[in-house]
């Protein structure tokens, strides 16, 4: 086998040292560029991720603020509604009371008037009844009873 002929060794090893030496230098010169490109890419990616992260945090804080404002607005609205409702209810109750009182007074006055006119009418009714009774007795008997007797009879009957 040519591999085991020692005469073949030296020329190969000599050229190997030379060629591999050149290759090592080429690689040493070329690799920093590869690394630089990869580093810059990693930097761009991490920067973009950082931007995205910041944007996300911002969006989250904005959303949190929005939610807080929403909650505050809702609370205020509820409070205002409640207050208004309470005020309105108190107002309505007060006015109702006032109106009730006015109506009661009016009713009382009317009642009094009514009672007065009722008594008046009853009194005149009594006079009329006495007259009518006198007339009826006169027609039936031909004799007019005494005014006192008719009035007492009417009073007795209406009692």
């Amino acid at each position: 086998m040519p591999q085991f002929e020692l005469a073949n060794w030296l020329p190969q090893v000599a050229w190997l040292i030379l060629t591999f030496g050149v290759m090592y230098l080429v690689v040493r010169a070329a690799l920093p560029k590869v690394e630089a490109v990869k580093l810059s890419r990693a930097k761009v990616i991490s920067d973009d991720l950082g931007h995205a992260d910041t944007a996300k945090t911002n969006a989250q804080s904005v959303e949190a603020a929005f939610q807080a404002a929403l909650v505050a607005a809702r609370t205020t609205a509820t409070k205002v509604t409640g207050d208004t409702k309470t005020t309105a209810a108190a107002d309505a109750a007060a006015r109702l009371k006032e109106i009730d009182a006015a109506l009661a007074a009016k009713a009382d006055a009317a009642q009094a008037t009514l009672a007065k006119s009722q008594a008046k009418s009853l009194k005149s009714l009594e006079a009329v009844a006495t007259d009518v009774t006198g007339d009826m007795v006169e027609r039936l008997t031909g004799r007019r009873p005494a005014a006192d007797a008719a009035a007492s009879a009417v009073a007795q009957a209406s009692a």
Binding site: L10, P11, Q12, W15
Partner: peptide, 9 residues
């Protein structure tokens, strides 16, 4: 020393 340029080189 033999350092000939061969097909291997």
């Amino acid at each position: 020393y033999d350092v000939s340029f061969t097909n291997s080189a």
